[in-house]
């Protein structure tokens, strides 16, 4: 399972004659489900349930959420022991304290240590700390991940490139009801002199799901 993000290349597929970016999804053949989405949305607006502006604002809000929010929380916990205690006591309130609008989300942070590795899954559907990290990756929603993470987490982690030693305990967390989970990874050795902003760059989305470990940020070539 690959685990690099390509979330930043949207709206760069060229520009229309009027100067607006093309939405490639708008130019494909209309599907039955797209017809349903259009019809439902129009009926909701006509019935006064919502407005086009409210829908657009909700999309913008969701687009503004990203793993960078969680990375900032993790880096703060690495550098501020009192904050870390608050995060482990109530991760929702600790995230709100940093200014993240996570709505009614009930969030629990689980800490990786020298002898414990945590892994998050939702076997029943696709529960994910979306109000902090944005929408989940596609692989998180697959049947393969959802069924295997609880049964053979070590094999799954090996495929992600994470080898957990046999003398360490894996704790898998199945988001079965009202809680959502975020992994607080262990701070890597050799990062003592980094600033909180530099540390945040070590924390990827997958680190906070438990399918990766923090690592030095790689130089990304732009324009690819």
């Amino acid at each position: 399972m690959p685990h690099d993000q390509h979330d930043h290349d949207h709206d760069h597929h060229g520009t229309s004659p009027s100067g607006h970016p093309y939405r490639h999804d708008n130019d494909e053949a209309l599907t039955y489900w797209q017809r349903m989405e259009i019809a439902v949305r129009e009926l909701l607006i006509e019935k006064g349930v919502t407005t086009a502006a409210e829908i657009a604002a909700q999309i913008d809000l969701m687009d503004s959420r990203s793993p960078a929010n969680g990375a900032a929380v993790v880096a703060r916990a690495w550098t501020d022991p009192a904050f870390k205690q608050r995060l482990l006591a109530n991760a929702g309130d600790a995230s709100r304290e940093m200014g993240f609008d996570i709505g009614p989300l009930h969030l629990i942070a689980v800490e990786n240590t020298a002898d414990t590795h945590n892994l998050i899954v939702c076997t029943l559907c696709s529960c994910y700390p979306r109000n902090l990290l944005g929408l989940p990756p596609d692989w998180y929603k697959t049947r393969a991940y959802r069924s295997r993470a609880v049964r053979e987490p070590r094999a799954v982690l090996t495929e992600f490139g994470v080898d957990v030693p046999q003398d360490s305990t894996i704790r898998v967390h199945d988001s079965t009801a009202d809680m959502r989970y975020i992994v607080l990874p262990a701070r890597p050795a050799g990062t003592e002199n980094l600033s909180v902003e530099e540390l945040a760059a070590w924390v990827t989305r997958d680190c906070m799901i438990g399918t990766a470990l923090p690592r030095a940020p790689q130089v990304v070539s732009t324009g690819a």
Binding site: V150, R151, E152, P153, R154, A155, Q166, T169, I170, R171, V172, H173, D174, S175, T176, A177, D178, M179
Partner: peptide, 19 residues
């Protein structure tokens, strides 16, 4: 407890929310 002899490592754990 969950998987018997098929468990990768018996002492690994699974947490879930149950009413």
């Amino acid at each position: 407890e969950l998987w018997g002899n098929a468990a990768e490592r018996p002492d690994d754990t699974l947490d879930a929310e149950i009413y």
